[in-house]
Amino acid sequence: MASVTHACAVGELLSAYLDGELSRDELDTVVSHLDTCLDCIAEFHELRQARTMLRTLPRLEVPDRALPDIHYGAELSAYLDGELPTGEQPVVFAHMALCDRCRNELYELDAARTAVRSLPRLEALLERRHVDQNVVPLRPKRRSWVAASVAAAVVVAVVSFAGNEPQGPVVDLEVFSVQHGARLSVQSPASMFDAELTAADVSNP
């Protein structure tokens, strides 16, 4: 099959042209050639489009305070209570997405509050004490508090256990990339289409 591909020598200069790296003579050659060669014009626009796309990629704007090297500590309690200044709340929220340390701290803080909320109400105990004041208990007061403490400890233990599963070893992402890359290397595009490219070789000596 006869080949009808277009292969101008000027095409090799287009990349350098976009980089402003051509000599005066080369520049004249390229500019005049681009006036006449439709294939090179198409190629030039494709190259320029690829570069423009690269330059116009969106950039992620992250406030400085959201970066993981700053930690919130004491302010986490205020965050949970919704008591931070209006502008600060979303910054802390964004920080949580990046910072394991603060996220775990917040999680533990919230779990502790949940445990506290599950304790028996103090008022109820006091009322009962008032009603039963004429009865002499075998072990006054102490049993209730021990039971409450045990209950609280159990709740805290359950919450902590359920919320924080033991974390395993850390493996570097590169390990998987390298091993996958090794296998992928025998499946290169050129090897996939060897028959099609061999046919092209024959028709384009």
Binding site: H6, G11, E12, E43
Partner: peptide, 9 residues
Amino acid sequence: AGKSLLGRA
């Protein structure tokens, strides 16, 4: 046969 790119067939 494809169009040329970077001056290459």
